[in-house]
Simulated assay, not measured.
Amino acid sequence: MSQFIIRNEERGHDLIKSDGSRSSYIAGHPDGFVTRASSFDFHEYQAGRPGFGPIRVFGDEVFHGAGCGYNMHPHHNFVICAFVFSGELTHINTAGGGMVDRLSAGDYYVFSAGSGGKHSELSVTPEDMHAIYLWLLPEQLYLPPSYHRAHFDFRRRRNEIVQLVGDGDNTLPIPQDLRVSRLIADKGQNFPYALRTLSHGIYVFVREGRINCNGVELGYRDSMGLSDLATVSIDILDDDSDVLLVETILIDETTIKVWESEHAGD
């Protein structure tokens, strides 16, 4: 078994002001700002550790101030997922005929930029918007852009691992061998998670609460990645613990470096 642990204080922590210096990208009034805590090291998302499999970004972000967020900007050959936990996210994207979507707590989306797409993400209400962003490489390049969204009912789906993204029933499709699940559970419960194959790994992130994952205690915003094992065991140590699990195929790092050199401006 291989593993790595990222404690909350070891993540990259950034405060990005909406002061005009980056107005082509950062939106909002000069009093607005984005706080970002990132688990991996990718361009402006800095945490000192490279990605995990096709995962390039796992960003824990808060938009502070009405109108704060990201202005319209392009991507290609990237898949971006957002999971909203509080506030309201207005997401404008060019997939298909283009659309404007408003997401609240429990809502989430998968935007595959594929051959080329643009999007803008804004918090237009006074309430802070908190979301976790997951960026990953697609399994196939230059696919047609696509957008899907759904809702996780956190009041009804307690004490079970619920798959949100991937190839399961009632999940959002994604062009990669990857699955995202969420677990909100009460103290004293145990949850085994069986990986598809030994070629898959899993990234476990504790958004709230405290757990024991394969003998390692993880608290608020702590995380770990595990590979070369068949099953992960999660013991819940605090009530209302909220855990995200990202199971992914593991990719040869040489292949990833070639991809990154070809897409350095994305």
Rank of each mutant, 00 (worst) to 15 (best):
M1I: 03
M1H: 12
Q3D: 09
R7N: 14
E9C: 06
R11S: 12
R11G: 13
G12S: 10
D14H: 14
S18L: 10
D19E: 10
I26M: 07
A27K: 06
P30F: 02
D31Y: 05
G32L: 07
R36Q: 14
Y45D: 15
Q46H: 09
Q46N: 11
P50W: 01
G51T: 04
G51C: 11
G51S: 09
F52D: 06
F52N: 11
P54Y: 00
F58Q: 07
F58V: 13
V62M: 08
F63M: 14
H64V: 12
G65Q: 04
G69T: 08
M72K: 11
M72P: 09
H75N: 13
N77G: 06
N77T: 01
V79T: 12
I80R: 03
A82T: 05
F85S: 13
S86A: 12
E88M: 14
E88Q: 15
T90W: 00
T90M: 14
T90S: 15
H91W: 02
I92Y: 04
A95P: 10
A95D: 03
G96P: 12
G97E: 13
G98K: 06
V100I: 12
V100S: 14
R102G: 02
L103R: 08
L103I: 02
L103A: 10
A105H: 02
G106R: 10
D107L: 03
Y108E: 11
Y109G: 05
F111G: 06
S112Q: 11
G116K: 03
G116L: 03
H119P: 12
H119W: 00
E121D: 12
L122E: 00
L122D: 00
P126Y: 01
H130P: 09
A131R: 00
I132K: 04
I132W: 06
I132T: 06
I132P: 08
Y133I: 11
W135Q: 10
Q140I: 03
P144H: 01
S146D: 06
S146F: 02
Y147C: 12
H148M: 03
R149P: 02
R155S: 13
R155V: 05
I161W: 04
I161M: 13
Q163S: 13
V165Y: 00
V165G: 04
G166P: 08
G166N: 04
G166W: 02
N170V: 00
N170G: 01
T171P: 10
P175K: 01
Q176R: 13
L178M: 14
L178W: 00
L178Y: 00
R179F: 07
S181W: 02
R182L: 08
R182P: 04
A185P: 08
K187Q: 14
L195S: 08
L198Q: 06
S199Q: 11
H200W: 04
Y203G: 13
V206M: 04
R210L: 14
L218V: 09
L226D: 01
L226V: 12
S227K: 13
S227N: 10
L229R: 15
T231G: 01
I234N: 08
D235G: 15
I236P: 13
D240S: 13
D242H: 07
V246K: 04
V246Y: 00
T248M: 07
I249A: 15
I251R: 10
I251V: 14
I251T: 08
I256L: 12
K257C: 05
K257D: 14
H263D: 07
H263E: 06
H263L: 08
A264K: 05
